[in-house]
């Protein structure tokens, strides 16, 4: 990958974990812990788009929320531009909120239905900047134009918009304070295919224009492939493989990535199906994950060592990392 010796990562997570306890028993022995995010280490470099993929329950959304400290982390470190923010209080985080924003899957859930879009978009300015009413209106109009809506839309309420337009509003709000980093959690998965493509294009344009860094979380591999420069694949709370997008998708080294990749139905009939790898069984419960390599129960290449020893995420060169005892040839 692009080793950037002189740059430092915009965001760095070290052994980041998020544990939830489940079961409200007063007896500690009956309480159980879910490792939603299990010792994840990640560097996010300025200007890149890191795609995080995985199936439901793999912890990708929790990881995204931890990265911007919307969810408290249980252990591990988190640095923004070299500054430790893992223990920062909400008050200390406030200036950082300008730099890190989030876009959610369901924009209607994050837009107050009783407030006009103009007011919703002006909130960031009210909280972080002192602007006159007319300056604020100008900035809101500019934001709306930037996401291909019209300044007249400011006086409407969220329900008057279609799903795609609401997502544009969600993006406009994230964009308001010109953040460095946007974590987008399934930003297009609730949208129709034709609208999805519009939003993906918009995100790519904005990235260019404002020099944004994205963490793009999605279960849809083709969308992630389109927008990401680098991808990380998660399984049961951990990253099993990461590296430059084209390489990881063209030649996956982790057997889970390979299975995920081959499970995606391709809208073409010309490509003969290369022997598809259909995984047996379901995702194990994160409450009771398998021993050793978390994937060994479904892995076609598992051997005894996979049951007993957990593989570490290790570099295999060219910016690629894989956590597997028997990596695929790729």
């Amino acid at each position: 990958m692009n080793a950037r010796p002189r740059e430092r990562p915009l965001l760095r997570a070290g052994d980041l974990s998020k544990r939830y306890s489940v079961g409200r028993s007063i007896f500690p022995a009956q309480r159980r812990t879910v490792h939603a995010v299990d010792t994840v280490s990640l560097d996010i470099w300025p200007g890149e788009t890191l795609g995080i993929v995985g199936e439901s329950g793999c912890g990708k959304s929790t990881l995204g929320r931890c990265l911007v400290r919307l969810t408290e982390i249980s252990s591990g470190s988190l640095e923004f531009e070299g500054r430790d923010i893992s223990d920062a209080s909400q008050r200390q985080l406030r200036p950082l909120r300008r730099q890190m924003q989030m876009v959610f899957q369901d924009p209607s859930a994050s837009l107050n239905p009783r407030r006009r879009v103009g007011d919703l978009l002006a909130d960031p300015f009210r909280i972080h900047e002192r602007l006159s009413a007319s300056e604020m209106a100008d900035r809101v109009a500019e934001l709306l134009r930037r996401v291909d809506l019209s300044p007249q839309h400011a006086s409407r309420y969220p329900h008057e918009f279609s799903g795609g337009q609401r997502q544009r509003i969600g993006i406009a709000r994230a964009l308001a304070l010109r953040p460095r980093l946007i974590v987008a959690d399934e930003p297009v998965s609730a949208l129709d295919v034709s609208i999805q493509a519009q939003i993906v294009n918009l995100l790519a344009d904005l990235r260019e224009e404002y020099n944004l860094t994205y963490v793009f979380i999605a279960h849809d591999l083709s969308v992630v492939r389109q927008i990401s420069s680098r991808v990380a694949v998660m399984y049961l709370g951990s990253i099993v493989e990461s590296g430059p997008t084209d390489e990881v998708f063209a030649a996956p080294r982790h057997h889970y990535t390979a299975a995920l990749r081959s499970a995606v139905p391709i809208p073409s009939i010309d490509r003969a199906r290369r022997g598809r790898l259909v995984l047996k069984g379901d995702l194990p419960s994160p409450m009771n994950p398998p021993s050793g390599c978390r994937f060994h129960t479904r892995c076609p290449a598992a051997t005894p060592i996979c049951r007993s020893e957990r593989p570490l995420l290790q570099s295999i060169g060219e910016g690629r990392l894989v956590a597997c005892h028997h990596p695929a040839d790729g």
């Binding site: 295919v193 034709s194 999805q196 493509a197 993906v200 294009n201 790519a204 591999l221 083709s222 969308v223 492939r225 389109q226 084209d246 998708f249 063209a250 990749r261 995606v264 391709i266 809208p267 490509r271």
Partner: peptide
């Protein structure tokens, strides 16, 4: 509208 899973990625969909 569907991003390709193989081959070069278009700059825009």
């Amino acid at each position: 509208s569907i991003p390709p899973m193989e081959g070069p990625r278009p700059a825009r969909l």
